[in-house]
C-alpha cells in the first residue's frame, strides 16, 4: 500500500524540527553577520547610521598583514595540535586496547583531561608554566635540562608551542576514545591471519589496523581541525594573544576587532573569512574520507 505522503516528503517532515532549530541558532546569526560584514557598523552606545560599503571590509582584512599573519598562526596551531593529538591519541588507544591489569581504570582515567573545562585546563597549564614557581621550570631544572627558570609563555619563540602542548593534553583523550572504539571492531582473526602471514607489529598496524580505523579517525580529525581552527578560549586565558602577538589566532583577532575595538562590521568580515577557511578545511577532509571509503 502506498502511504499518503511520499518517502521524500516524509524525510523532510521528519527533519523539519531539527532544521527549524538549526535555522534559528545558526542560519539567522550567519545571515546577520554576513550583512554586517558588508557594512560600516560599529558597536556604540549612541544610535549610529549603518551604511552598506560593499567589499571594503574584506579588502581591508585581506590586505591587513597582521590578520594574514594571524591566519598563518591559526593554521600552524591547527596542524600541529591536531597532528599531535592524533598521533598521541592513536598510540594511547593502542596501549589501552592491550590486555593488562588495571585496564578499565586506565581507560577511565585517560578521559579526565578532556572532562576538565578548557578554562580550568588553561589556568592549570598557566600555573605549570609560571616563570617563578611553575612545575615545568622546577622539573626541567631538577633534570638539569635548563639552567635557570624561564618564562615559557613570555618567550615569543616558544609561547605558541606551549599553548599547543596544553591544547594537545586537553584534547588527545577524545581522539584516543574514538580510536579505541574503532580498534575494538578490528577482527582478531584478521590480525591473526596477518601474524601468520609473517607481518610484524608495525606492518600489521599500517596495513591492517590503520586502514580499518581510518574512517572514524578522519571524522575526529575533521571535528578537531574545525575546533582548533577557531581556537579562542585557551588563548584568551593563557596569553591573550601575546607575547608580541605570537599567539594571536584568527578568532582572537575577530574578538579584538569586534569587542575591543567595537568595529562590528569589520569584525564580521574577519569572522566570515575564518568561517570560509573552515569550510574549505571541512571540504578537504570530506573528500579525503570519501576517497578512503571508496577504496574499502
Amino acid at each position: 500500500m502506498r502511504s499518503l505522503i511520499g518517502a521524500k516528503q516524509q524525510k523532510w517532515l521528519l527533519l523539519a524540527p531539527a532544521l527549524t532549530v538549526l535555522a534559528l541558532i545558526s542560519f539567522v546569526p550567519f545571515v546577520k553577520t554576513l550583512w554586517l560584514s558588508f557594512s560600516d557598523s560599529e558597536i556604540s552606545a549612541l544610535p549610529t547610521v549603518v551604511s552598506f560599503i560593499g567589499l571594503e571590509n574584506y579588502i581591508y582584512a585581506l590586505t591587513d598583514p597582521d590578520f594574514i599573519l594571524s591566519l598563518g598562526r591559526t593554521l600552524y596551531f591547527t596542524f600541529v595540535s591536531v597532528g599531535a593529538e592524533v598521533i598521541l591519541g592513536v598510540a594511547v588507544a593502542l596501549l589501552l586496547n592491550q590486555q593488562f591489569r588495571g585496564r578499565t581504570l586506565m581507560r577511565a582515567l585517560i578521559i579526565l583531561p578532556w572532562a576538565i573545562p578548557t578554562i580550568v585546563n588553561a589556568v592549570t597549564w598557566r600555573l605549570i608554566y609560571n616563570p617563578d614557581y611553575g612545575a615545568l621550570n622546577s622539573l626541567l631544572m631538577q633534570l638539569g635540562i635548563i639552567g635557570e627558570y624561564r618564562s615559557w609563555l613570555g618567550d615569543p619563540d616558544v609561547a605558541m608551542n606551549m599553548v599547543i602542548l596544553a591544547d594537545v593534553w586537553k584534547n588527545f583523550p577524545l581522539v584516543a576514545y574514538v580510536a579505541l572504539a574503532a580498534l575494538q571492531t578490528v577482527p582478531m582473526d584478521m590480525l591473526n591471519a596477518a601474524r601468520l602471514e609473517g607481518a610484524n607489529a608495525w606492518r600489521r598496524f599500517y596495513k591492517i589496523t590503520l586502514p580499518w580505523i581510518i574512517g572514524p579517525l578522519l571524522v575526529i580529525i575533521v571535528l578537531r581541525s574545525v575546533e582548533a581552527f577557531r581556537v579562542f578560549d585557551i588563548i584568551y586565558v593563557m596569553t591573550r594573544g601575546g607575547p608580541a602577538n605570537q599567539t594571536k589566532t584568527a578568532s582572537f583577532y575577530v574578538y579584538q576587532e569586534y569587542f575591543s575595538y567595537l568595529r562590528s562590521g569589520s569584525g564580521s568580515s574577519y569572522a566570515i573569512i575564518v568561517a570560509l577557511i573552515s569550510i574549505i578545511l571541512i571540504y578537504g577532509y570530506y573528500k579525503a574520507a570519501k576517497r578512503q571509503n571508496g577504496s574499502l
Binding site: D189, M190, N192, A193, P211, W212, S295, L296
Partner: peptide, 10 residues
C-alpha cells in the same frame, strides 16, 4: 584459513 575468512578489506 579462518572461519570468518579474515580477508583484508582494504
Amino acid at each position: 584459513v579462518f572461519q570468518s575468512y579474515a580477508l583484508f578489506p582494504n
